[in-house]
Design a protein around this nucleic acid. Structure first.
Lengths: 184, 184
DNA sequence: CCAAGTTGTTATTGACTGATAACCAACGTA
DNA sequence: TACGTTGGTTATCAGTCAATAACAACTTGG
């Protein structure tokens, strides 16, 4: 099985996907460029060549995550441009824990100025998307994002979602307040 | 200025406080035990001697964070055991960005089983505290935690709170939905 | 005043990691 | 078929870091 040669662009897309997986588990500092490289089946120096620095790779992974979520919202609004509809769509995203964890790692890593700028821009983009698609009020948007952030945190903590750890009384109670939704 | 000798217990408390500061900025993987040591004015190996491993130090910092928040809730409930009262108390905590960032770093690092167990236990403790102090319903608790997680994320991202970065249109609008509260 | 416990330090190491350099291989094309 | 371009690799390094070991200084009770 000789290695298939891809164009630089194809390889970058593949590496960004691998980066989302890797970074979502270990975070920015806790993930090595070598882990990403192995996931994609290439050598570590090549990852650096294609993305220049580890930070640029992380930013690309972050951007890809936000774009996926944004696209999910737009697809849902195509069917029904209401907050409950988009909420349901986000709920489905819990099945992709990598995305939830990636978001949280981005928030947490915002102390780094370059990462913070990127993360704030991404969050703002999602906020603007929600407001534009549904025409909701700022108060409704805040409430929507409140629910969303709680879901994101709970999924990252493995309290809900497909990779959830055995439930405690409190988490069963909390999960029970989402009655008509199915996790994964 | 000769170094003051402290008891091991006193030194540990001091180190936990330093650890919260350090870890809240860099996260678990992104912070070195030497940074914590310097913050407290002791040598790096001594930190390891007192806490055995870096992970144990992080867990102690996490626990301390949760205990502080728990105590804040209890103090507020002493005056007025209602959700708005506790919400106001949590709002005040935004002024201590370290605590918010520490929480988020804990959530994000939950992929590590040992850390995840600790973090889930801490979150559960806060949930139980809220329910016990206010007697609210699970649905009310979920909504409360939704607001709280949004605030926590926004504070960590420096969108709101004392260390906030210049506002964008979207963040001004979002912050504007908290009209009668003062940041820091 | 000395011996034992406690609070620290310096020295060191082995493993890891992002990044650079230099080189190799496949492909199209004139 | 020679050659430039693009897609990769191996070798290597300079810096970093958690953890261990050995030792030093202070304190306290007998």
């Amino acid at each position: 099985m000789s290695r298939t040669r891809l164009t630089a662009e194809e390889r970058q897309e593949q590496l960004v996907a691998a980066a989302v997986t890797a970074f979502s588990s270990g975070g920015y500092a806790g993930t090595t460029t070598d882990q990403v490289a192995r996931l994609a089946g290439v050598s570590q120096p090549y990852v650096i060549r294609l993305f220049r620095t580890k930070q640029d790779l992380f930013l690309a992974a972050m951007q890809h995550t936000v774009e996926l979520i944004d696209a999910t919202f737009r697809a849902a609004a195509d069917q029904d441009p209401t907050l409950p509809s988009l909420g349901h769509a986000y709920f489905q995203l819990l099945g992709r824990r990598e995305l939830m964890a990636m978001l949280l790692h981005g928030f947490a890593a915002s102390d780094d100025p370059a990462i913070g700028d990127h993360v704030r821009a991404g969050f703002g983009r999602l906020y603007d998307t929600i407001r534009a698609l549904t025409g909701c009020t700022p108060e409704e948007a805040r409430s929507f994002f409140g629910e969303g952030m709680l879901l994101t945190c709970l999924a990252s903590m493995r309290v809900i979602g497909p990779a959830a750890v055995p439930l405690q009384p409190w988490s069963a109670e909390l999960a029970g307040t989402y009655p008509d939704e199915k996790f994964d």
